[in-house]
Simulated scan of single mutants.
Amino acid sequence: MTTTTHPGFRIFILGAGFSRPAGLPLASQLYPAVKPLIEGQYGTDTKFDRDLNYYLGYCDDCGVTGQTKDALDLELFMSYLDIEHYLELRGSDTWSREGNESQLMIRRVIGQVIHEGTPAADKLPDYYYRFAEMLSPRDIVLTFNYDLVLEAALTQVGRRFRRYPYRFTSVNEYGGTLDSDTEEVVLLKLHGSVDWFDDSQFSDSRESLKAKGVGKIGLHSVFDDPKRYGVKPLVVGMLPPNDPLIHLHTIQDVSRYYSQDRGFNAPFILSPSHVKFVYASPVMSLWNGLGRAGGYNLGVSVVGFSLPTYDEYIRIGLHQMLKNYASWWDSPMLGVLKDYARFVDYKPEQADQDAYRERYKFAGADRSRFFLNGFGPDALDFLFNQPRVA
């Protein structure tokens, strides 16, 4: 397989187009898979069904067209549910801090669809392993995908990685001392992951019951018995006080969870919603400082992320990052020039290509290069084997 001696310090931003060639569904393909799974597992007389009917009535009343029970825009439906829950429009009739019943059902089943659609770790297309091998220690991957495709590829080729920003040798109330000796790829999943669970509400409920003298009762099918699915903290090692990442855990037996668990829980994923960021508190540590990134990086590549107009919070972050990236453009760092900002996506029609370039025009036409035939072997050559030279 191909290797690289690049010094790293590059940023790779991955969207759904990165995982699509492995067989993962796009957001527009989720609803036809989600609805029958919910009905098969929970029946048709559920809060999901009642919320769906109410939403369709809302659409009729407000002139939102193209929405039917068998074919609707899941992102619009989730936006409706997220707004209703976040603003507490139901008052005290709220299931949990993580969401109401319908939101949890949908996120749980999205996780199942994504997991079941992911090939086995040794059955991915070869170019995923090549991509993983071509990453260097000190590279940072920012992904908006829930799946475990890249984790599987990195593990398969023996590339060391972590899924949190920093390792610390010591911590204090102001932060801590960074471990600068451990070299590994940093993979930050900004929208969560199918194998992540947040224990904050479980912990609060357990402490509340304990204070009232209530003995052990079932609260959460994942955290009640940590051995059942192999629960482990997401972060290995120390964390500064009050870092919300302390509440995020991974499960090791992901297949068992999605095939057997029928608990009313959901993985920590930010739903495909136009207002998903309002639920981002548990992963704020992953976002912190991204607007200052780019200045000292040697590459910024965007793979399979079309920057939809409703994800304005992502546009703001990328805009700041790429503006910073323009600094020291003609001065070599660590013996190499900063690369062009590179964009990979699948846009077969000229009109779509023009619109895509227009969307990313803030990267600077003279500092950008585009490959619009989709992620695959040729995209690897574009990303890794065409360095900018003086």
Rank of each mutant, 00 (worst) to 15 (best):
F362G: 03
P125F: 05
V302D: 00
H191G: 04
E39M: 05
V185C: 05
S205K: 14
R357N: 05
S136E: 09
A341R: 02
V64R: 08
K216P: 08
Q156S: 13
I316D: 14
I13R: 00
D330I: 01
L52A: 09
S170G: 05
W328S: 15
G111N: 06
S203R: 15
S79P: 03
L24K: 08
E88N: 13
T44G: 06
R228G: 04
L290T: 14
Y146A: 03
M238D: 15
L142Q: 07
Y127W: 11
Q112N: 12
R388S: 01
L150V: 02
S301V: 01
F384S: 01
P332H: 01
E173G: 12
Q112W: 05
F371K: 01
R107H: 10
L307C: 01
V275W: 07
L142Y: 11
P387C: 02
I106C: 07
G17L: 02
S285G: 11
Y229L: 00
G40E: 11
S205V: 14
C62W: 13
N288S: 14
G299W: 00
Y360W: 01
G294L: 06
E84V: 15
P332D: 01
P240R: 07
V275S: 11
F18W: 04
D366Y: 00
S368H: 00
Q386N: 10
Q67M: 11
L270S: 06
E133Q: 12
P244K: 11
D93P: 08
I246M: 15
P165E: 09
G376R: 03
L81A: 10
G63T: 09
F18D: 02
L270Q: 08
E116D: 13
A132D: 06
T4V: 09
D199I: 08
P25M: 06
T46I: 05
D366N: 09
P32F: 06
D225T: 14
G99E: 08
G317L: 15
